[in-house]
């Protein structure tokens, strides 16, 4: 297929707590496209998108557990990869 469609996305509530997460995503995923909608932000990326614990912790200056993502998460698409150090989404194709 010429245009391979392997996008993943994550949508977060557009609030104070999400801001460093968005920044961390932009920092670690150069291909990510960030789109703002009323009350919501949707971030798409081809093939893979990752939120790294270290990047977030550097931005907020405290410990951060990737599972905290649940609090401001709205939706996602892709296969979830989760461990102590990251929360990620990826496609197999």
């Amino acid at each position: 297929m010429v245009n391979k469609n392997n996008n993943v996305y994550i949508a977060l509530q557009n609030n104070e707590e999400s801001r460093p997460l968005i920044e961390a995503i932009e920092h670690d995923n150069s291909d990510a496209r960030v789109e703002f909608y009323p009350a919501m932000v949707k971030i798409d990326a081809p093939g893979r998108l990752v939120i790294r614990r270290e990047t977030v912790e550097d931005l907020i200056g405290r410990d951060w557990d990737p599972q905290e993502i649940h609090i401001n998460l709205i939706s996602l698409s892709g296969n979830v990869i989760e461990d102590e150090d990251q929360f990620g989404l990826e496609r197999a194709n």
């Binding site: 949508a11 909608y37 009350a39 919501m40 709205i74 939706s75 996602l76």
Partner: peptide, 27 residues
Amino acid sequence: MPFMSGAAFNGDMATVTFGFSAQSDES
């Protein structure tokens, strides 16, 4: 997502909040 975002756009902060809170479980 688009409907609840629309609720926010129309000033209904209560509905968008339960909508997004539910959808986070849906993830």
